[in-house]
Simulated scan of single mutants.
Amino acid sequence: MTAAAAGTWGLGDREVSRIGYGAMRLTGNGMAGNSDGPPIDRDLAVRLLRRAVDQGVDHIDTASFYFSPLRSANELINRALSPYRDDVVVVTKVGPGRDASGEWQGMARPDQLRGQVEENLRQLGRDHLDVVNLRHGGGDGRSVTEHFGALADLREAGLIRHLGLSNVRPEHVTEARAIAPVVCVQNPYGLDWRQADENGLVDLCGELGIAFVPFFALSGRRREAAAGQERDDRVRAVARAHAATPAQIRLAWTLHRGPHVLAIPGTADPVHLDENIAAAGLRLTPEEWEALGAPVADGR
């Protein structure tokens, strides 16, 4: 089984498999700056990334703020995948910043985004970035116009190929599209976290041909923490029926949501990597979909 079994969707002018790989867990708890345990062995991380690509994963999600005292996700990706294959798309994000000690510095000003883009370029060893997502505050009403406009200028300058958004509301998508094309939207979403259904964001992206890329699809409201033991009897029952793991069923549910929905599960475990990729071939029956709680078609 390869990632291709999930089908493909476009990220701008690039087609990617709907099962990708999120690099946050290569550094421990990369977003929070702490670790669930010892840092991953560097050579193991390199082998893991290469194994993912060998199995058809061509969409790698990362950020320069995914780092711990001993590991940087971007630099591991650079070591594993450089020189980069033409069919591998690396998606990064800018907006929040962390200092060298790992402390969050808040949202960058628009004029600081070029520095963040250049840092991603340096760490990844690239002369341009395939996709850059503006990570927003999400729940507040702040406009994305100034920040997204600054990224659009960097796109025009050739530093960025495509632009996306992260942690946003539907109105932010409308705002951004008035400035430059939006190829993807990353938001928290999964079986237990349906806000993007309730506000219509998943359906809006589908109508506009924009890739919707959930994060925390497995861990849910545990967020950066590793997914815990499965407690949902519905998920366990469907997993037994397919001789699959609960995590695979959660990924299958995510992919079932629509052809424009991608998945970027992250792991530092080669066995879990293989299981995540194998989820590309799982197909839920209509009855299973209903049993797990099919979303309302349009929550707006």
Results as ranks from 00 to 15, higher is better:
Val173Thr: 06
Asp87Lys: 05
Arg236Met: 13
Asp86Thr: 13
Arg234Glu: 05
Asn187Gly: 02
Gly30Gln: 07
Asp127Phe: 02
Pro270Cys: 04
Pro286Ile: 13
Gly102Thr: 10
Gln116Lys: 10
Leu292Cys: 03
Val183Arg: 03
Gln105Thr: 15
Gly206Val: 11
Arg236His: 01
Ile160Gly: 00
Gly220His: 10
Thr62Tyr: 08
Gly30Lys: 07
Ala45Tyr: 09
Ile277Thr: 05
Asp197Lys: 05
Pro270His: 06
Gln123Val: 03
Arg47Met: 01
Val182Tyr: 02
Gln55Val: 00
Glu118Leu: 13
Ser64Cys: 01
Asn34Tyr: 14
Val57Asp: 06
Gly141Trp: 11
Val89Ile: 15
Val296Trp: 04
Ala226Pro: 09
Ser64Gln: 14
Ala108Arg: 15
Leu134Cys: 08
Ser219Trp: 09
Leu151Gln: 08
Leu208Asn: 02
Asp99His: 07
Glu156Cys: 00
Asp192Gln: 10
Ala32Asp: 15
Ala6Ile: 13
Glu119Gln: 15
Ala291Leu: 14
Ile77Trp: 03
Gly138Phe: 06
Glu287Trp: 03
Ala263Tyr: 08
Ala244Leu: 08
Ala176Met: 09
Ser82Tyr: 14
Arg240Val: 09
Pro270Thr: 11
His256Ala: 15
Asn74Arg: 02
Ala180Arg: 12
Gly209Trp: 12
Gly20Cys: 05
Ala280Pro: 12
Glu288Leu: 06
Gly139Glu: 06
Gly115Lys: 08
Pro188Phe: 00
Leu44Asn: 00
His172Lys: 10
Pro170His: 03
Asp130Arg: 11
Gly20His: 12
Ile77His: 03
Ala73Asn: 04
Asn187Arg: 08
Gly299Asn: 08
Gly37Arg: 08
Val89Cys: 10
Gln195Thr: 15
Gly209Ala: 06
Val213Ala: 03
Gly7Thr: 14
Ile249His: 04
Asp140Tyr: 02
Gly164Ile: 13
Gln112Gly: 01
Arg221Ala: 07
Tyr66Gly: 01
Leu204His: 04
His128Lys: 09
Tyr21Lys: 03
Phe216Arg: 08
Val91Met: 10
Phe212Gly: 05
Ala176Leu: 11
Thr145Arg: 15
Gly138Ile: 11
Val296Cys: 00
Gly125Asn: 11
Ser68Tyr: 04
Glu230Met: 11
Ala52Trp: 13
Glu207Phe: 00
Gly139Cys: 00
Glu175Leu: 11
Leu273Gln: 04
Ala45Phe: 08
Thr174Arg: 14
Val144Lys: 09
Asp298Thr: 11
Glu275His: 11
Leu76Glu: 12
Gly37Pro: 09
Val185Gly: 00
Ser72Cys: 06
Arg250Thr: 05
Arg194Thr: 15
Thr254Cys: 09
Leu81Trp: 10
Arg142His: 13
Thr254His: 01
Asp298Gly: 03
Ala227Phe: 01
Ala227Trp: 05
Leu70Ala: 12
Ser72Gln: 13
His242Met: 06
Ala247Gln: 15
His242Gly: 02
Arg177Leu: 07
Asp58Lys: 05
Leu262Val: 14
Asn120Pro: 01
Phe215Gly: 00
Tyr84Asn: 01
Val261Gln: 01
Met24Lys: 02
